Amino acid sequence: MSEVLVCGVDEVGRGPLAGPVVAAAVILDPNRPIAGLADSKKLSEKKREALYPQICDQALAWAVGRAEVAEIDELNILHASLLAMQRAVAALAVAPGHALVDGNKLPKQLPCSAEAIVGGDGSEPCISAASIIAKVVRDREMVELDARYPGYGLAIHKGYPTKKHLEALQALGISEIHRRSFGPVRKLLA
């Protein structure tokens, strides 16, 4: 009997005031383990950037899903995150038999059985890999958005509510990539 293919699923970008929420799903190859996998938040940017091509190259399958700012504002960040996760799993070129999802909630309509694991990005290598893919993809996108929306410092803080970001919002106003349903942005609209 063949092994059940397990995909790890994680998202990045629930806390920022700007940009999409990005999720990744990764099915690691048990015959090609990757050293150094950990929760992306605990790894340096340099380490994440080094692991990213290795994961892309050695995984049996990986995919990214996302929910845009309009969806975040419409659904709320939790439901948008779950939607991004569902999209990531659906986009896998190889169908998983089971999904390990970081957190305490599961996306709806997954094509396989699934379990939620709190702190899974630190304990399950496939979730760590998904965490790294999602973080690198989103961070790179925020650097690109920084060029299109200069002055907010997106390349530095990646959209998170830092002092510099909040000051830039005050000075420059709200851009189309800012989440209107988030407190600091909503306050400026009022």
Rank of each mutant, 00 (worst) to 15 (best):
V101P: 08
L92F: 04
G65L: 03
A99S: 10
P184K: 04
H165Y: 15
C7R: 00
N104W: 10
I133K: 07
G97W: 02
I34S: 13
P53Q: 00
H98D: 06
Q54W: 02
L17P: 06
V64L: 09
L166N: 07
L100D: 12
V101E: 10
A70C: 01
V118F: 15
V4N: 01
I156G: 12
V9P: 14
G15A: 10
R138T: 12
P111Y: 07
P20N: 11
A50R: 13
D57Y: 02
V118C: 03
L110K: 05
I174V: 13
P111F: 03
I156D: 09
S2P: 10
A84I: 00
G120I: 08
D10C: 03
E176L: 13
A171F: 05
L188Q: 11
A99K: 00
H98Q: 14
K108R: 03
A114P: 00
L100P: 05
D146V: 06
D121F: 09
L28R: 01
A114Y: 06
V64A: 11
E124P: 00
K105E: 09
G15I: 09
A155K: 06
P53F: 13
A93P: 09
G120Q: 09
D102V: 05
L154N: 06
V89Q: 03
V9F: 07
Q170N: 12
F182A: 02
L78G: 06
G159P: 06
R186G: 09
V4Y: 08
Y160D: 05
Q54Y: 04
S113H: 07
A168G: 02
R66G: 13
A171G: 06
P20D: 14
E124N: 10
L172D: 05
A168V: 15
G97S: 03
E49V: 04
A130P: 00
P125T: 12
G15N: 14
V185D: 15
A171L: 08
A93M: 09
A93L: 01
S81V: 04
G13A: 06
A80D: 04
V118Y: 14
V143H: 03
A24Y: 02
F182D: 01
V26R: 02
S81A: 11
L92E: 05
A95K: 11
V12D: 00
D10T: 03
S123L: 04
K164L: 08
E141Y: 13
G15L: 08
N31Q: 10
G103I: 02
M85H: 07
A67Q: 00
S123K: 12
K163M: 01
D146R: 11
V22M: 13
P184L: 14
A93Y: 08
M85D: 14
A130S: 10
E74R: 15
E11S: 13
E144T: 02
Y52M: 01
L154S: 07
K46R: 12
D39S: 02
L172K: 08
E45P: 09
K187S: 15
L92C: 01
G19R: 14
L83H: 13
E3H: 10
P107L: 11
V101A: 09
L28Y: 09
K105V: 05
Q109S: 12
A116Y: 05
G97D: 07
N104A: 10
A35Y: 10
V118G: 11
V9M: 03
P125I: 12
E144N: 07
S128Q: 11
A67T: 00
G173W: 06
K105S: 02
V94N: 03
G36Y: 11
I156F: 04
L43C: 05
G8M: 04
N31A: 10
D39A: 13
G120H: 07
A116C: 11
R138V: 05
A99I: 05
